[in-house]
């Protein structure tokens, strides 16, 4: 559907595009991290692409891959209704990614969420704090190596609480 845009990106940044693929009409471009911001700026501002709508930004943890994290961006062009998915790999050792909050103010909270849940630091973000969890929380819970049972309560848990409610008794009716 938006192969045209993929071709435009590839022509403009031949060195930046690592991989492209399409699934059910949705095209994906995987770009190098150092060219990510320029590619997105081109997608947004170039009249030929005009991907002016920031749809979504999130992150994926692939524990067995190098690079481990993948920041996933969804864009849409209002006028032509074309969609494009941009992915950028983020290694665990240098867990940073350029911020898009200068291009779209809406990216601010999405990047805060990705930071909160995965620990990706968005360089150039004006206010990179946790957005959903509390400041006392240690670690990033959607990383695959976060222990599933690990909770970080803010108030002491009561010791005398039963493990579960008692079974519902038979009542005379």
């Amino acid at each position: 559907m938006s192969q045209r845009i993929v071709d435009l990106v590839r022509a403009r940044f031949p060195q930046a595009v690592l991989e492209t693929h399409a699934f059910r009409g949705d095209d994906t471009v995987v770009v190098r991290r150092e060219d990510y911001l320029e590619v997105v700026r081109f997608l947004k501002d170039s009249p030929g692409t005009a991907m002016d709508f920031f749809v979504d930004l999130t992150c994926v943890d692939w524990p067995d891959r190098k690079p481990r994290f993948e920041v996933v961006l969804h864009l849409k062009a209002w006028r032509s209704s074309e969609r494009l998915r941009v992915k950028v790999g983020v290694p665990e050792e240098d867990c940073t990614c350029p911020s898009l909050s200068g291009l779209w103010p809406a990216a601010n909270w999405f990047e805060r969420e990705a930071f909160d849940m995965y620990g990706v630091r968005f360089v150039g973000h004006p206010d990179l704090r946790r957005i959903l969890l509390y400041d006392e929380f240690q670690g990033h819970p959607l990383r695959k190596d976060y222990p599933k049972e690990k909770r970080q309560p803010l108030v002491p848990m009561r010791d005398d609480a039963p493990p579960q409610p008692p079974p519902f008794p038979e009542r005379p009716h």
Binding site: L133, P141, Y146, K148, K150, R151, Q152, P153, V155, M157, R158, A161, P162, Q164, P165, P166, F168
Partner: peptide, 27 residues
């Protein structure tokens, strides 16, 4: 509220009786 429901994860209190004494549980 009674046991945390199916949210057995990092964020949800596994039943409010972990923080408050609770008198009646409605499943």
């Amino acid at each position: 509220a009674a046991v945390g429901g199916f949210y057995d994860n990092y964020s949800v209190v596994q039943g409010i009786d972990k923080i408050l004494p609770c008198d009646v549980y409605i499943p």
